[in-house]
Amino acid sequence: MRVLSTAPHIKTRRTTKHIMLDVLIALLPATAAGIVYFGWQAAVIIAVALAAAVLTEFVWYLIEHKFWRDTKTVVGAWAKQFDYTSLVTGLLLALTLPANIDGWYMPLLGSVFAVGIVKMLFGGTGKNIVNPAIAGRIFLFISFAAMTVYPAANFGPLLPDNLSVWQTHPLIKPTWTPQNALETGATQLGNLFNTKPLLSNLDLFLGTGVAGCIGETCKLALLAGYVYLCVRGVIKWYLPLLYIGVTGLFAVALEGFKFVYFLPSVLSGGLILGACFMATDYVTSPKSTLGNIVYFVALGLLTAGLRKAAGLEVVSFCILLMNFLVFLIDLAIKPRPFGYVRQKKEAKK
């Protein structure tokens, strides 16, 4: 008996699994940096989030496929179709949580919400409307006050005078950390530049002494992941740069074209993590290249604008918001085939 199918009869060996594995590999530097900077708590959060994400998917699959009839077959089928997407979701969620959240139940709840409600309830891989990790993070953010306080990295800023500045700064309340002072928009940024930068751009880049979520502080590690993703052809290199660049430039424009604001806006908060790993999520971004450009520019404008207006770190909210608009972008942009000739409009009578 011969195998019959329509052409083509050969296919690339690169499957969804490989792509997801590449994303996981690209996140490794940021994960390692997070564990080094924030200690064992970070490792626990990451482990719990990963385990909960995979378990949620597993349990969902078992129930969906009526495991009580034939458990062995269903478990085997699950292992065969497992494509690492829930691992990516779990890891991304953990990387967007602060390391000092009290209790292991928070990453667990976040993962269950992200995978169970946001992904599986909508139909599983490829069917979710919003990015599960972002939705999970925002779910935790609006549920727990602990999510709004970020610890600083174990290593102090590289430049010692900065340290003394932010410890003794009159404008900074005790609960404030330099990172959220930096990232929370206009007033803080204004304070910053009226006195003296609290953290040097180099510290922001390396994440030393920066307070923030586990995975977002070390920009160097994130950029290493970004380069890996580009080299492996997982993401288009210009899209994250578009988001980051537009955010920086619009922030500069909002501050009256003071270009000194560019690097702090770009390097603070979750912008780089969001731009490289969250906004580029295939499922929740537009299908066409032009649509993607529109989406990423809109994200940049929204992020800079909302940062200024709300005085909060808003990258995850912006991505969530834009996720809901993706279907409109997809409907608005129609392909122009090779050899397309613009139809001449009939002359008006």
Binding site: T15, T16, I19, Q81, D83, T85, G124, T125, G126, K127, Y282, V283, S285, K287, S288, T289, N292, P335, R336, P337, F338, G339, Y340
Partner: peptide
């Protein structure tokens, strides 16, 4: 397996279709 909307099909289409 399910479509993950990666857009690679549109990237390689020689006729620029979707």
């Amino acid at each position: 397996t399910p479509c993950i909307n990666c857009g690679k099909c549109a990237d390689v289409c020689p006729m620029k279709l979707m």
